[in-house]
Structure formats: C-alpha cells, structure tokens
C-alpha cells in the first residue's frame, strides 16, 4: 500500500531537515561551548588547586621579584611571572580562582535559599507578611548593595564567614520576587491547589510540589546572579576591605598589582582577565539556559 507523495520529504515531515552540523551549532552556539569549557576548567582548577600550583602561593622569593612572564622576557620557571614579593603569579592565580569560585558558589547558594524561603513565606501568608517582605525587597533595591556591604564590613569587622554570609545576601531580592510570584501563581491554579485539596500540609505543597516545578527558573536566576557576586567579591577585595591577606582572591591580586601597573602590569592583568572571562562565560551560559528553558525570567 505504498502511496506516492511527490514533493514531500520521505518521512512526511513538513519541516526541512537541517544538516547535522548546522542543527548542532543552532542548539550549541560556539560561544556557549567556549563558555562551558572555560567554566569547566575553572571548576576543575577550584577542585584540584593544591595539586596544580607549581609553587606554594604564599612562598616568597626575594631573589625572583617582579619577573615578567615567559615570552615577555621571563623564563619557564615562572610562566606568568612573579609579583613584588617574588611569589609565583600562576600559583597565586590558581589559588585565587579556587577561593573566588568557592565564595561565589557558596554566596549564591545562600542567597537562593534565603530568597526562596522568603518568597515562599510571602506567598504562603500573603496579607501583611507579604507586604513586609515586599517592603524589605523595595528597600534592598533602593540601596546599592556595594554600599551596604562596605558598611557592614566596617562595623562588623572582616572574617571569612562574615564575608561569605554578606555576599550571600546579594541578589536575594531577585530570587524572592521570582519565587513569590511563581508560588502565588502555582497556588491559585492547578497542581498546588489540587495538592492542598487532598489535605497535604503546606510544607509538603511547597517543597514536594511547587519547588520542583519552579526549580528550573530558580536555577537560571541563580546562574544570572553569579557574575554579580564575583564582581562584588572582587571589587571589595580590590579595595582591600574584602578578603584579607594572606588569603588571596582574584580581586585581591588586582588590588595589590595596581601599584605596579607601570613596572609589572602582568600581576594585575592576569587575574583581571580571569575575572572578565569567567563572568562573561557565566552570563553567556545563563542567557543561553534562560532562552532554552524558561524565557520568562526577567
């Protein structure tokens, strides 16, 4: 029973087939692939940093101060040169990447948890609780976070836990708004109302039903939050009020390198480049994720 169908493709599809490579590039643009590769590298470095550093990142070598990188008059002993105390820039960069990436991820995790919790509380109680949460969100939006962070660090002093907790408050208001909005709309129609109807407790409704359903959107919001955290952390460290020596982070390196901008610009350029490429990669990936999974965020 073969029926001839002229002018139709063999499988009867009205869509024209794309060639394999073009279809692949359409879903995975080269920029996105590069960004993912770079981020993979950063995570790899963050995990295995102690095994990768050629020198101890704190080891001072006064005989090898301000050595330029290889190809700029330096040697392979210090591939990216050394700083004002003769510390190996590559080793310091690797150690800094570990610290900066870890802080950014922890802080984003904290802000997501805070944001989702507050959003759910606002959506569950509504009424005046909701108004209070929204007012705090408004107040947070009204103040530049950088200023708040500097003030808190000034009053509470600086330690790693305080610093991470503080960065963990960055961006919570975005997550709260998204989580609140999604929870309210889930509540008024559909599966959440149905779960309520079978007698499920609020905890069960929010954690077992609503959270999994909005998780994709939350993950995207988290991803888009990461560049901001990295920028904030590095800016504060750059100003000397973030991470304190002997701890090192990328912003820290730039901050100390800026005094040698004339004589040894590599100290500052290398970590700057890492910051820029990383934040760029995260936002490219975040945009791509958003476009693919949930174009409604922001």
């Amino acid at each position: 029973m073969a029926i001839e169908q002229d002018g139709l493709s063999t499988d009867g599809s009205v869509f024209t087939e794309k060639s394999g490579l073009r279809a692949f590039l359409q879903t995975w643009p080269p920029m996105v692939i590069l960004a993912i590769v770079w981020l993979g590298l950063m995570v790899f470095i963050a995990i295995f940093a102690p095994l990768l550093t050629p020198y101890d990142f704190m080891a001072v070598d006064v005989l090898a101060r301000l050595k330029p990188p290889v190809f700029f008059g330096g040697t392979f002993n210090h591939v990216l040169g050394t700083d004002q105390l003769g510390r190996d820039v590559l080793s310091r960069a690797i150690a800094s990447i570990r610290v900066s990436i870890t802080i950014a991820l922890c802080a984003t995790l904290i802000s997501t948890i805070v944001g989702v919790t507050l959003g759910f509380i606002a959506a569950y109680f509504r009424g005046w609780v909701d108004q209070v949460v929204l007012t705090i969100v408004d107040a947070q939006l009204a103040m530049p976070f950088m200023i708040i962070a500097i003030a808190v660090l000034a009053f509470l002093g600086n330690s790693l836990p305080i610093f991470v907790m503080l960065l963990g408050l960055y961006g919570w208001e975005q997550v709260t708004r998204i989580a609140r909005g999604l929870a309210i709309s889930a509540n008024t129609q559909g599966y959440a109302a149905a779960a309520r109807e079978i007698g499920a407790s609020p905890g069960r409704i929010y954690l077992r039903h609503i959270l999994p359903n909005i998780s994709a959107t939350i993950v995207i919001a988290m991803t888009l939050n990461i560049p901001g955290v990295i920028l904030l952390e590095s800016s504060l460290s750059f100003l000397g009020i973030g991470l304190q020596p002997p701890q090192t982070s990328l912003g820290n390196m730039v901050g100390y390198g800026r005094d040698y901008i004339q004589s040894a610009p590599w100290i500052m350029l290398m970590p700057s480049a890492v910051i820029v490429v990383t934040t760029l990669s995260v936002s490219i990936m975040g945009d791509w994720l958003r476009d693919r999974i949930d174009p409604t965020v922001k």
Binding site: Q189, Y191, A194, A195, E197, I198, G199, A200, S201, N213
Partner: peptide, 30 residues
Amino acid sequence: RRMRRRMQMIYQDPLGALDPRITIGEQIGE
C-alpha cells in the same frame, strides 16, 4: 486537612490539577 480524607473534589481541567513532574502512580498514592 483531616476533613479532606472524607471530602474530595474533581476538577474541570485535569491537566492543570496534576503535578507535571510527578508520575501518575505517585500522585494517586499521595
């Protein structure tokens, strides 16, 4: 919530009332 054991509702829009991320069996058993 206890009273839900004795009274239940059936909706006009069955797709909307089902959690898209949980299997049918689990939802019936919930």
